[in-house]
C-alpha cells in the first residue's frame, strides 16, 4: 500500500536511517542564447541511506537535471545540495570530480560504454581510479556476465550492456547509485531483469539508489517515489511495501 504525503516539503525522513543527501531550495536555470529557461525550481528533498528512490516525470520535467546536480555532474543555480555534511555548492571542479569518483556510481540510459574496451575493461575504467573498489570479476559475476566479460559492447545485447554499465557503476563501491532511465532503451523483460539487478545491489551491497524514469510503473519497486513536473516536485509517495520487479508490469 502507498502513503501519499501531503506536500513536497514535508517529506519527513525516516529516523531509523540517516539522510545521505539533502537538497534545499534548489533551482537551475539554463541560458539558451538570449532566453533563460528555468528547469528546476524550489526543490526540497532528502535521500536516506540505503533508500531506493524513484523520480518519475515526463520529458522536460527536470529529472535528468536534478540527477546531474545530485551526482555532481552539474551545479545548481541556487539552493543548497548537501551530501552528508558537505555542501556540493561550495565544491571546486576538482572537489566535484573527487566526489563523483569516490561517492557516486552512474548508470545511463544508453549505457555509455567505451566501444573500444571489453566488458571487463569497461569496469576496470572505473575501478582503476577508485580507492576501495570491488573485485572486477566478482562484480561481473554479480551482474551475471562472468562468461561475457571479454566481449566488446558491440558483441553484447542491450540488457547485457546495461548490466556492464551497472557493474561499472557499483565496482568502485560508491555510496550512491544514480540511474538515468536505465530501462529506457530496453524491452520489457530485459528492463525487469535490470531492475532486479538494481534491487539486488541495494539489498546485497547496501547501496542507496536513485532512479529516474518516465515510466511510473517502476515506482512500485521503490521505497519512495518523487513526482516531478515542470521542474517542481509535485508530490512524494512512500511505499510501505515495495513490490518485486517481477511483479510489476507496464
Amino acid at each position: 500500500m502507498t502513503v501519499h504525503e501531503s506536500s513536497p516539503s514535508t517529506n519527513a525522513p525516516d529516523t531509523s536511517r540517516l539522510p545521505l543527501m539533502r537538497l534545499s531550495q534548489v533551482g537551475k536555470t539554463f541560458q539558451m542564447g538570449e532566453v533563460s529557461v528555468e528547469v528546476l525550481r524550489d526543490i526540497e528533498l532528502s535521500v536516506l541511506e540505503r533508500e531506493f528512490l524513484v523520480m518519475v516525470g515526463p520529458s522536460g520535467s527536470g529529472k535528468t537535471t536534478l540527477l546531474n546536480i545530485m551526482g555532481g555532474m552539474d551545479l545548481a543555480s541556487v539552493g543548497q545540495v548537501w551530501f552528508r555534511d558537505r555542501d556540493l555548492m561550495r565544491f571546486s571542479p576538482r572537489d566535484l570530480t573527487r566526489f563523483r569518483r569516490d561517492s557516486i556510481g552512474f548508470v545511463f540510459q544508453f549505457y555509455n560504454l567505451v566501444p573500444n574496451l571489453t566488458a571487463r575493461e569497461n569496469v576496470l575504467v572505473s575501478t582503476e581510479i577508485s580507492q576501495n573498489p570491488l573485485d572486477v570479476d566478482e562484480t561481473l559475476d554479480l551482474v551475471g556476465l562472468a562468461d561475457r566479460m571479454n566481449h566488446f559492447p558491440s558483441q553484447l545485447s542491450g540488457g547485457e550492456q546495461q548490466r556492464v554499465a551497472i557493474a561499472r557503476a557499483i565496482a568502485k563501491n560508491p555510496e550512491l547509485l544514480l540511474c538515468d532511465e536505465p530501462t529506457g532503451a530496453l524491452d520489457f523483460e530485459t528492463g525487469k531483469m535490470v531492475l532486479r539487478l538494481l534491487v539486488d545491489v541495494r539489498e546485497r551491497l547496501g547501496k542507496t539508489i536513485i532512479l529516474i524514469t518516465h515510466n511510473s510503473a517502476i515506482g512500485q519497486i521503490a521505497d519512495r517515489v518523487v513526482h516531478l513536473r515542470s521542474g517542481q516536485i509535485q508530490g512524494i509517495d512512500v511505499n510501505a511495501s515495495p513490490q518485486q520487479p517481477e511483479e510489476i508490469t507496464w
Binding site: 551526482g71 555532474m73 571542479p93 576538482r94 570530480t97 573527487r98 566526489f99 563523483r100 569518483r101 569516490d102 557516486i104 552512474f106 545511463f108 544508453f110 555509455n112 560504454l113 567505451v114 575504467v125 572505473s126 581510479i129 577508485s130 561499472r168 568502485k172
Partner: peptide, 16 residues
C-alpha cells in the same frame, strides 16, 4: 563526447 562525459561522471579528472 559521451565517452568523455561518462569518464567525467565516473570521476576522471580533466587532466587525465
Amino acid at each position: 563526447r559521451t565517452i568523455i562525459g561518462s569518464l567525467k561522471a565516473i570521476g576522471y579528472e580533466d587532466s587525465q
